[in-house]
Amino acid sequence: MTTITSELTSEKALWMFETMITIRRFEEQARREADSGRLRGLHSSIGQEAVPTGVCAHLRDDDYVLGTHRSHHHCIAKGVDIREMMAELFGKATGTNKGKGGTMHIADINKGMLGANGVVGSNIPVATGVALAAKVQGKDSVSVVFFGDGAANQGSLHESMNLASIWKLPVLFVCENNRYAESTPVEYAVAGTSVANRAEGYAMPGVTVDGQSALDMYEVAGEAVARARAGEGPTLIEAQTYRYMGHFGADDPLSYRTPEEEQYYKDRDCVDRMKAYLLETGTATQEDLDAIDKEAVEAVAAAVKFAEESPFPSPEELTTDVYVSYR
């Protein structure tokens, strides 16, 4: 079931587990906050933790990640502080975006997180430009854009793939195919049902990968990042994954999919599989894993406390940051 990746150090493997469990605990808490009415609807990334984790395991602080409306997992995998993320969800001045952006726009330039984005497909050209900046400035940093199966049908992806290919830009186009765009199944909306196949038309590698396997993600992303850093151009990765929750929380996913299908994917849960790998390889004991999980739970609780105790932005903040300078 799991691919054993030779160059994966035990340190990195443990980081991947810690990252995924932190994402899951963060998202579970965010969901509770939304259900209790302290927050509004959120796009949960539960089930999709392995995708950004396997990719970000190869990234440095000077590499960039760009996301979507569903980006808490991208942010955490890229190293954004979960206290500042939670404060942002609470609309506090200490949030990553000073409370101005919220769940769909979390960004932290110091960590190379160039933002979640609420407009589907909108970040793909931006990520392409980020890669262009690296190339023009002679840097070997890379740019990664995550987008959904739904976004794969926006013209922005196609235009960007073409640009990135003709200019050999260091960008990874990572499609998180979680099988649905809101309630629309991928087999209805994506002609031919493969996103990865579209790479062929733009003369770049297109890879389909089990996005519920952090190890497979790690392997595939490693190759693509190496290619990008070596100046060999972009790669399109289609990670097959699943969102466990509804689209934004309040919707009932069983109005468009079966419990059997949900169970099929939950049986292949990325966190469970990473645990199994760590135990099988003797990288960690059950106690080690429990301790990491407990730390994640505590870190999330601390993040909520930080968010609760933080001040709201002052009223003047309404009109600051519109421009760098004006007049």
């Binding site: 609309g91 975006n97 409370g99 101005k100 919220g102 932005p313 009223p315 309404l318 009109t319």
Partner: peptide, 15 residues
């Protein structure tokens, strides 16, 4: 005001 729409529950009503 000549500003984008803020997220925070304390700022949005001011908009």
């Amino acid at each position: 005001p000549h500003s984008s729409v803020p997220y925070s529950t304390v700022l949005e009503p001011l908009f």
